[in-house]
Amino acid sequence: MTNVPGVPALAYALQQLINGVTLGMIYGLIAVGYTMVYGIIGMINFAHGDIFMVGSFLSLIALLGLASLGITAVPLALALTLIFAAGLAALYGWTVERVAYRPLRGSFRLAPLISAIGMSIVLQNFVQVGQGARVKPMEALLPGGIALMDDGNFAVQLSWMQIAIVVTTLVVLAVFTWLVTKTPLGRSMRACEQDLKMAGLMGIDTDRTISLTFVIGAALAAVAGLLFLLYYGVIDFFIGFLAGVKAFTAAVLGGIGSLPGAVLGGLLIGLIEVGWSAFLPVEYKDVAAFSVLILVLIFRPNGIMGRAEVEKV
């Protein structure tokens, strides 16, 4: 453990905690999409990380577009961007499901997986062709923040951006939870999760429910994309790959199929990543996340909050 000279250990740790929670919120939002789709149709939607990336690009385009229209009031611009990016990313999510997954129900085992890989490659290279391979930087929208525990030479920084990210995530998750637990749509989704075939027999339009699952997952991923853009201030066509694997790790860690698990897993992955960067060689921080994935799958494949899967014979 490397102690940064002149920095009190407690304050340093607190700073990492704040950073980790912020990052974890973003991963959690993406992880929800993985876990929902897995819960309903039992597949890993490899293209989900790239939907997140598309959402991030849509956000950047919207922010620039709004600026050129003269809408610069930050809260308004952010709200409009959020709606724009979430809406269009949802359309992407819907299209991916409709084009690449729906025709494959009942096809052989590897077909949906391979198709999903294909879709992931398509989205990545589509954005690379359309928007160029260079990284896209953006100025900070919300500079500044609050200094906590200031002892004159190190202050724990809680930036406005971090507050905005945490608040946005909580609000979005609250709306989402309401949607899943209290509305008829949520009921159909949970029914499909229990037993897709049976739900269909009971008169639930399963195709529509699955579509909506993708739409909601994509919208959440787009919100994560916007937050990622705001937090790091720079994106490129490749961010979906790493973020996707990490968020998937989060979903598995939390117990795939479990919605609270996904958020919890996201927080843990965020904390692990930030903690690793703070105290251990930063070059290997991505390896840390991947290693967590492999270790969890080996030792606790059902995650923290997941149910044991009973093999159907």
Binding site: S107, A111, S115, M119, S120, I121, V122, N125, F126, V129
Partner: peptide, 24 residues
């Protein structure tokens, strides 16, 4: 110069199309 990128785009599309039309 862009062809490698297009190539990956084609590969990705091909994976999807193959799975949809002729999975075997």
């Amino acid at each position: 110069g862009d062809l490698p990128t297009y190539r990956m785009l084609i590969f990705g599309l091909a994976l999807v199309v193959m799975m949809v039309l002729r999975p075997r």
